[in-house]
């Protein structure tokens, strides 16, 4: 459960997020993700959602907030490997139009 670095290279910083993303868990996740981004300042940040088991709109807020941060820093953001049920709420939110969902 939580946030960890999967890989960190010139290509980019790949961060794994696991467990449930809700209002409770998202604040810790946000702090961790942002500290990694600020520490490594990569060209691309890839958030791997393959281990996310559940997500409500707090997860949408988490993605949107990271999108704003990375955009400000000139970093590209990608969200990858979301499971179908997690994808559904991402698609519902309309953030797909930001082009970050791969």
């Amino acid at each position: 459960m939580g946030v960890s670095i999967l890989s960190n290279s010139k290509e980019g910083l790949k961060i794994s997020i696991s467990g449930d993303i809700d209002h409770h868990s998202s604040s810790d996740m946000r702090i961790k993700i942002d500290s990694f981004i600020e520490k490594y300042h990569p060209k691309i940040v890839i958030l791997d959602f393959s281990s996310v088991s559940f997500m409500d709109t707090s997860g949408i807020g988490l993605i949107l907030g990271r999108f704003k941060l990375t955009e400000r820093m000139g970093i590209k953001l990608e969200v990858v490997n979301a499971r179908n049920r997690v994808k559904r709420i991402i698609e519902f939110s309309g953030i797909k139009s930001l082009g970050i969902l791969k």
Binding site: S26, R30, D56, T57, I60, G61, F92, S93
Partner: peptide, 14 residues
């Protein structure tokens, strides 16, 4: 705050 999506009720309704 800025990290809230404002979509909670929309999700419930949908």
């Amino acid at each position: 705050g800025s990290d809230r999506s404002g979509l909670g009720f929309a999700v419930m309704k949908s």
